[in-house]
Design a protein around this nucleic acid. Structure first.
Lengths: 348, 348
DNA sequence: CTGTTAGCGCTTTCAC
DNA sequence: GTGAAAGCGCTAACAG
């Protein structure tokens, strides 16, 4: 006995052991135990083999199987940051979609580090994953991903990646922004503003564009932007809201914050300034974080359909593996109506 | 050309290709490329081989390597539910701790379903994971896990599992409850109550016990419990808080909610009843969800150190794999002081 | 229907 | 130092 791991080094039962014990040839056992080929074995011998296998508590050695078949029933999921609230449900969705086909997800984090991404992709290719799902890529990652995408099906999700043919499953941020604009118009708002998220995360500019387009079409006045958040956090939301307040001039009757954290920051600043929400100013967020329903006032926000995005990505993996060429998927937003927006009486 | 996957079926470069191209024997290439054995190869041939390998962009075939070595550099992480806020940071921690050793985590969800747990464990053993980390087990899972733990190092984390020798990495919920009691006592509270989480999740009874013990030792009066939440949610928190209010009688000056969601429910009920928090009643939560700092009033709560728990579990995996027999780890709680507790003037 | 014979791509003795 | 051979446990042709 060598190390502390000794007790887990019990000699494993192999196909040969089962074959010997059952008095048949190994390949017969192999056939009997494979759902796709057990029809080719006489029912009686099959049952005998199965019972022997069970008695010896035989477990197939996937690794050996993979070496032969080339497939690993494994999907590599590469996420920028597992701590990010919207990433987890995507993974959840992917895992759920592929497990029906007996596949498992292996997960790794880049921490938004370009070099780490390269290493992880290499590692996953070495492990011969059957496909890769990339959850939140940055534009600088494009080349690495395209090379990897040549080796193995690779699906981009969570954040759009411009200038590539790689298959995408994303959320339609543009439609989300538009939807907010149209809701505010219906509630009678005329003068509005945006609190923008960082421009280098592709989702935010799209929300901005969708919203601006929606405003223009609805004939609303959009106040010029006060820059954008460096990172999408409560603190940056506070900074942006203060900027808007300090500028003086006309105050919008409604504000579109590019995500819920920014909205929370704005809420805090407005509360401190004794400006009522939604009585004086209405606010709409984005993401529908779990907390959105529980702040005061409960936040009207656009639901980011992470779970559906993940599920669609998982299904796309299955489709590509089945030899299909699926089209890009864009999951539409849904507005979660709560109490941070109120109707404005027609102007007089 | 056959299917849509045709382009990903480019013939892979093998060790033999590199050997042929470099004019040496495959085993020499194998040695030259293995950090542990490259000393046994003449420096000049080694460099030559490396350059050829790079030129052909050779990638080692891990699967084949594993078949030989028996190790897969893979840790299986089994979580009850990825959607659960406290699970993700644990996984995050595990993944971070093991990746330094070149290992990757493969992740699967049981959805708190006992049968699924069995399947997943089987699947992971078949994949020959080097170790398993179970994130939130239920007491009924004990047997399955002990059997699995006989095959491969298995570490229990997130929730304690009673009656087993399996190595644990958990959070000290008992100390957490005690810490809340002691804080309330220092703030001058004398009459307190608990809003309990479900008893079948081992964490909650421990919080309850710790708190009760703390109260007794501090000479505080703890009101008898009004049952417990069926599930730890906002809605159940509301139900429990209403029960406490409707009972009439003496109102506690401080309440310990077994988690932040329950606390939120209580907060909502108290607000509706126009009972000021913290002016009339103080509240303490548990978990320190991201939202805790942003509700009104910002919630004083016990931080559940998920990330540290995960990291410790990952390190324990490494230790066990290195042949050590590490001791169970218990990560202590930290109180996040905010504004939902206020000092009570000495009784008159 | 079942047995035989080759490997999958790599590491690992053992010779030279 | 390097080459030769023998597998790791399994699946996949091909015979019978």
């Amino acid at each position: 006995v060598s190390s502390g791991r000794a007790d887990s080094t019990v000699a494993r039962v192999t196909l040969h052991d089962v074959a010997r014990e059952a008095g048949v040839h190994p390949s017969t056992v192999s056939r009997a135990l494979d759902p796709n080929r057990q029809a080719k074995v006489k029912e009686s011998t099959r049952r005998h083999i199965v019972s022997v296998a069970e008695r010896l508590s035989y477990r197939p050695h996937m690794i050996a199987r993979w070496l032969q078949s080339g497939r690993t029933a494994t999907v590599g999921v590469i996420a920028a940051d597992l701590g990010n609230t919207f990433v987890t449900p995507i993974i959840h969705g992917v895992a759920g979609a592929i497990e029906g086909d007996g596949m498992l997800a292996i997960i790794a984090e880049t921490q938004d580090d370009h070099d780490r991404l390269g290493n992880i992709v290499d590692h996953m290719l070495s492990r011969r994953v059957d496909a890769i799902v990339v959850v939140a890529a940055r534009s600088g990652d494009r080349e690495i991903l395209e090379v990897a995408g040549g080796q193995v099906p690779l699906i981009v999700t969570g954040r759009p990646l411009d200038g590539t043919e790689l298959p995408h499953v994303v959320h339609d941020d543009c439609a989300g922004g538009r939807m907010v604009a149209s809701h505010l118009q219906q509630m009678g708002h005329r003068v509005v503003a945006q609190l923008r998220g960082p421009a280098d995360v592709a989702n935010f500019p799209r929300r901005a564009t969708g919203f601006s387009d929606g405003c223009r079409e609805a004939g609303m006045v959009e106040l010029p932007p006060e820059g954008a958040a460096d990172v999408p956090t409560v603190a940056e939301g506070q900074r942006l809201m203060k900027l808007l307040l300090d500028k003086g001039g006309e105050l919008p009757t409604a504000i579109f914050a590019h995500n819920d954290l920014i909205a929370l920051g704005a809420l805090a600043v407005l509360r401190a300034a004794r400006i009522g929400v939604p009585d004086t100013v209405s606010i709409v967020g984005y993401n529908d974080l779990p907390l959105a329903a529980h702040v005061m006032p409960p936040l009207t926000t656009v639901r980011y359909p992470s779970l559906e995005v993940g599920r669609a990505a998982g299904e796309m993996v299955l489709a590509v593996l089945a030899g299909e060429h699926p089209q890009d998927v864009s999951i539409p937003p849904v507005l979660a109506l709560r109490q941070s927006v109120r109707p404005v009486p027609a102007a007089g």
